Simulated assay, not measured.
Amino acid sequence: MLDPFFPPEPFLQQLVTPLCNALHLYSLPLHIHEILAVFILYHVIFEYLSPLFSGFFLEKQYTGLSRESKLRWNMHCVSMVQSVGISLLALWVMAMDTERQSMNHEERMWGYTGSAGMVQAFATGYFLFDLTVMIRCLDVFGIGMLTHAASCIVTYTLGFRPVFNYYGCVFMLYEMSTPFLNIHWFFDKLGMTGTKAQLYNGIALVSVFFSCRLVWGAYSSFNIYRDVWNAIHFDASATRLSTNDSMMMYGRDRSLPMWLIIIYMGGHVILQLLNVFWLGKMIAAIRKRFTPEAQAERKQK
């Protein structure tokens, strides 16, 4: 399936192609405009739209926040747009891209479709924005968030070799739990801590997080581990398994270097462990807001 987004300007594509070829990122020039467009969009939301609309519609709540809380508020606004948009886009591509659906093992590893590349580019644009904010506001977000942003931008950029293009949409479905996390945070800042709305949102958050990140994540990780194992034993000199030349036209490097395996596989293992840890922290945080002691304390205020 072709990329439904408008094509890049020839000048921009030609400008970045030599560097991308040198870095073995052969499909990146096709999506450089999408990365830049998403980066600019989220920067505008973070710097201008979120402060403007939040200050207008929630003047009392927003203007009373500290500098740190305002930065976090604006970041949650960007995160809300990103998580909803990329989840819907990934689901749409998975449902509509018949070429992607028909991929065999070789194509899942080194193949490419324009629509899946678009999802990958939109995610890369967000993580590029995320990285710049983490660097600028390191005192607020901390070294942990900076490390997370850096690892994400490296992982998704390397996908433009292309490698694991098929799995870009798959792991973007992790973001389906993020809107509920953002809403939970907004409830606290809007004085709605301990309300029934926050309770129902908390139940939805834990349910979707468990389903998307632990169940779906474990299943998808197993699939990519299996594909990597088969790829390690794949004979590149043998007759190609792929029957679709258009999907493989950018897959010039039918290889899987050990450093790439370590980055991807190590990242997935760490992320799955973090998902278990975060789930426990979420459950504890939600329960804390609804203990009898917390309810009594809020009534006294």
Rank of each mutant, 00 (worst) to 15 (best):
Thr98Ile: 03
Gln101Val: 02
Gln101Ala: 07
Gln101Phe: 00
Ser102Arg: 13
Met103Glu: 03
Glu107Val: 06
Glu107Asn: 04
Arg108Trp: 00
Trp110Asp: 00
Trp110Asn: 02
Gly114Leu: 04
Ser115Asp: 11
Ala116Cys: 14
Gly117Phe: 03
Gly117Trp: 06
Val119Leu: 06
Gln120Leu: 15
Ala121Arg: 03
Ala121Lys: 06
Phe122Ser: 09
Ala123Cys: 14
Ala123Arg: 06
Gly125Met: 06
Tyr126Ala: 10
Phe127Gln: 06
Phe127Glu: 01
Phe129Asn: 07
Leu131Val: 04
Thr132Tyr: 02
Ile135Glu: 01
Cys137Lys: 03
Cys137Thr: 00
Asp139Leu: 10
Val140Gln: 05
Phe141Cys: 09
Met145Lys: 01
Leu146Gly: 10
Ala149Met: 04
Ala150Lys: 01
Ala150Met: 10
Ala150Asn: 00
Thr155Ser: 13
Tyr156Ala: 01
Leu158Met: 14
Phe160Ala: 08
Pro162Ser: 03
Phe164Cys: 10
Asn165Pro: 02
Asn165Tyr: 00
Asn165Gln: 09
Asn165Glu: 08
Tyr167Pro: 08
Tyr167Phe: 15
Tyr167Met: 06
Gly168Pro: 13
Cys169Leu: 07
Phe171Val: 02
Met172Tyr: 12
Met172Arg: 12
Leu173Lys: 09
Tyr174Asp: 12
Tyr174Met: 13
Glu175Leu: 11
Met176Gly: 10
Ser177Met: 10
Ser177Gly: 10
Thr178His: 08
His184Ser: 10
Trp185Tyr: 12
Trp185Met: 13
Phe186Ile: 10
Asp188Phe: 11
Gly191Phe: 09
Met192Arg: 15
Thr193Lys: 15
Gly194Asp: 06
Thr195Asp: 07
Lys196Leu: 14
Lys196Pro: 03
Ala197His: 14
Ala197Phe: 15
Gln198His: 08
Gln198Ser: 07
Leu199Met: 15
Tyr200Thr: 13
Gly202Val: 11
Gly202Asn: 07
Ile203Thr: 09
Leu205Lys: 08
Leu205Glu: 02
Leu205Ala: 13
Phe209Met: 05
Phe209Cys: 03
Phe209Asn: 05
Phe210Gln: 02
Ser211His: 08
Ser211Cys: 13
Leu214Gln: 12
Val215Phe: 13
Val215Arg: 07
Trp216Leu: 15
Gly217Leu: 04
Tyr219Gly: 05
Tyr219His: 13
Ser221Lys: 01
Phe222Pro: 02
Asn223Phe: 05
Asn230Gln: 14
Ala231Phe: 04
Ala231Gln: 03
Ala231Thr: 12
Asp235Trp: 02
Asp235Gly: 07
Asp235Pro: 02
Ala236Trp: 05
Ala238Ile: 01
Ala238Trp: 00
Thr239Arg: 03
Arg240Phe: 07
Ser242Glu: 08
Ser242His: 12
